[in-house]
């Protein structure tokens, strides 16, 4: 179980993030301003800190600096509405581990948090399991009943994203942004997602795996073994 502190000044967004992360089985604390964030960090050891740079009563970067100064071991993800390489580099320089530009998909945040936690807590050695499917994120390998799946890079990205966000609706937009980044606003990218998924299904079926990919109307997909 992972303990996450989310610092964000918009209470509604905060609530969304909290309920999403709690549904994933994490403990999620929230702080909507600089002062209460500082208080909470002092009390409780969190695994992951998700912090917005622009806060009503202070700067998120100062929180990161304070944490680094006191040598608290905590994975840090910056969420910011500013998409500027300067901010990003500065944030990473003072010790943040990742940087996510607003608006982001909760599934994307979830994937980032999980892979950061995996890197921190298990030094990246942990495998991700889903029934007969096993993912080794470091070697970019996927096994079905211990048989290695031969995947392209994007196919790996998709199945990784799916398994990390299991049982969740992943919209095509969220998948496209995860695969190609948000600069590529491609018209026919959804067609390509479909093609990727078709190939992926075929490859898993060849090794005797189950088809967990459910199509949800025309909005997106769900990777689940529930009905």
């Amino acid at each position: 179980m992972m303990k996450v502190l989310v610092i964000e000044d918009n209470v509604e967004l905060l609530r969304d993030i909290k309920s999403f992360l709690e549904e994933e089985g994490n403990i999620c604390e929230i702080a909507s301003n600089y002062r209460s964030a500082n208080d909470k960090i002092g009390y409780f050891p969190y695994d992951i800190l998700v912090v917005d740079i622009t806060l009503p009563d202070g700067n998120g970067l100062d929180i990161i600096k304070a944490i680094k100064k006191e040598n608290i071991d905590m994975g840090i993800i910056i969420i910011s509405a500013k998409n500027a390489v300067g901010d990003k580099i500065h944030g990473l320089e003072i010790g943040a581990d990742d940087y996510l530009t607003k608006p982001f998909y909760l599934a994307e945040l979830n994937a980032r948090i999980k892979s950061l936690f995996r890197r921190k807590a298990y030094h990246g050695s942990r495998e991700i399991l889903f029934n007969e499917i096993k993912i080794k994120p470091d070697s970019l390998e996927v096994f079905v009943d211990d048989h290695l799946l031969n995947l392209t890079k994007k196919e790996f990205d998709i199945i990784h994203f799916f398994v990390v966000n299991r049982h969740r609706l992943l919209t095509k937009e969220a998948i496209a942004e995860h695969l190609w980044g948000d600069d590529i606003e491609m018209v026919d990218s959804y067609k390509f997602i479909y093609t990727h998924l078709a190939n992926l299904r075929k490859k898993i079926a060849q090794l005797g795996g189950n088809d967990y990919i459910q199509s949800i109307y025309s909005v997106g997909y769900k990777f689940t073994d529930r009905e």
Binding site: N10, E12, L13, D16, F20, A81, K102, P103, F104, Y105, L106
Partner: peptide, 10 residues
């Protein structure tokens, strides 16, 4: 962007 993100999540 923040309200849009919220709308999107909902």
């Amino acid at each position: 962007q923040t309200p849009l993100a919220i709308i999107r999540n909902k």
